[in-house]
């Protein structure tokens, strides 16, 4: 168990180093940051001075080491565009993105799992076929289109939900939350559905196919032959066995949700990291872009680690440390 976690941590560190290298490369070889920071009338001397101040003249390995060291201390540089520390900038946007992503993931799970279970148990039912058809739409429509359609219906025509922004956010220390006000919650609905719809259909289809597969297994047949109730067979035996892949996919998808929040945040003008990233791309604000990359990678790595640990909780076959000597 300990060895397993250590091995995973080591892998995580390796992944983070590679991503940092890419970020660093991006930092140093994409565009000319000075151009984006200064006006037309700045003199060449002033530009050189700025380069020196920003440390852009030092040898590359030194700069990479400094980059890593700074990153570890949470110092991610200064935004070229807003002349503000990137760390603080991103941190101020982080709560909005995390709340949106979590809401999307919860939506995907709470709707996707029951739908998948239903479709798995009654694959021939008309409702199951309807779910299947809808999920096909969910998978094939691009996110921005779904967002725009939802805005059209619920904000423009029905006028019951806001079409942009985060509603009212309340500060809890450095964290701002929209979950405590009615306006904040209302503002969350459309973006969360937009962002989570793809994952919802993915989870539904996954649970459905896993259920169908598990229901065909011998241990389910044997559970029925033992006279267990349908509820016991379907939920404690079948559903539990579909959880390992569902946890994997949900975990990986949570990373994807956070990463893909970029599009949804743009459509809904949601003040999160994604929107910040898009804006910094437009301005070649490399420190922000690079930090965003690193942060997303970090989230992926953490999520993967948690997913691996969850396996342990669900599947006893992985707990190899107990001597499972077959007699």
């Amino acid at each position: 168990m300990i060895a397993f976690v250590l091995r995973r941590l080591l892998q995580a560190v390796a992944v983070m180093l590679v991503v940092s290298l890419i970020s660093f490369a991006l930092f140093n070889f994409v565009g000319d940051p000075i151009n984006n920071m200064v006006g037309q009338e700045t003199t060449l001397d002033e530009r050189a001075e700025l380069r020196r101040q920003l440390g852009l003249e030092d040898p590359i390995p030194l700069r990479f080491a400094r980059f890593i060291g700074n990153a570890l201390q949470g110092n991610l540089g200064v935004s070229y565009r807003m002349a503000e520390p990137v760390g603080r900038l991103i941190l101020s946007r982080l709560p909005a993105t995390l709340e949106l992503s979590l809401a999307a993931a919860v939506f995907a799970l709470l709707v996707g799992v029951p739908m998948g279970v239903y479709c798995g148990l009654y694959p021939r039912a008309p409702l199951a076929r309807l779910f299947q058809a809808v999920s096909l739409v969910g998978v094939s429509l691009p996110t921005f289109l779904i967002g725009i359609l939802l805005i059209l219906i619920f904000a423009v025509h029905l006028n019951i939900l806001p079409s942009f922004g985060r509603g009212e956010a309340v500060a809890l220390g450095w964290w701002t939350t929209g979950l405590l006000t009615a306006a904040g919650l209302k503002a969350l609905i459309l973006p969360a559905i937009t962002l989570g719809l793809f994952q919802m259909t993915l989870i539904m289809r996954l649970v459905r196919s896993e259920m169908l597969e598990v229901l065909r297994t011998d241990y389910i047949k044997f559970a029925r032959a033992r006279g267990l109730s349908n509820r016991a067979v379907h939920f404690s035996h079948a559903l539990r066995n579909t959880l390992v892949p569902v946890i994997t996919i949900t975990g990986l998808q949570l990373g994807a949700i956070i990463a893909f929040a970029v599009i949804t945040e743009t459509v809904f003008q949601w003040p999160g990291m994604g929107l910040l990233f898009i804006q910094s791309v437009q301005f070649a604000d490399v420190p922000v872009m690079a930090s965003y990359l690193i942060l997303i990678a970090l989230l992926f790595v953490i999520i993967n680690l948690v997913v691996d640990l969850l396996y342990y909780a669900v599947d006893p076959r992985l707990r190899l440390d107990r001597p499972g000597k077959a007699a």
């Binding site: 241990y219 032959a225 267990l228 109730s229 035996h237 066995n241 006893p316």
Partner: peptide, 23 residues
Amino acid sequence: RQIRGRRIGAIFQDPLTSLNPLY
């Protein structure tokens, strides 16, 4: 269902797959 297990039991071919691995 109340007859299965109570009045008629069953044993299947493959013991490796007859038991739920998670319990």
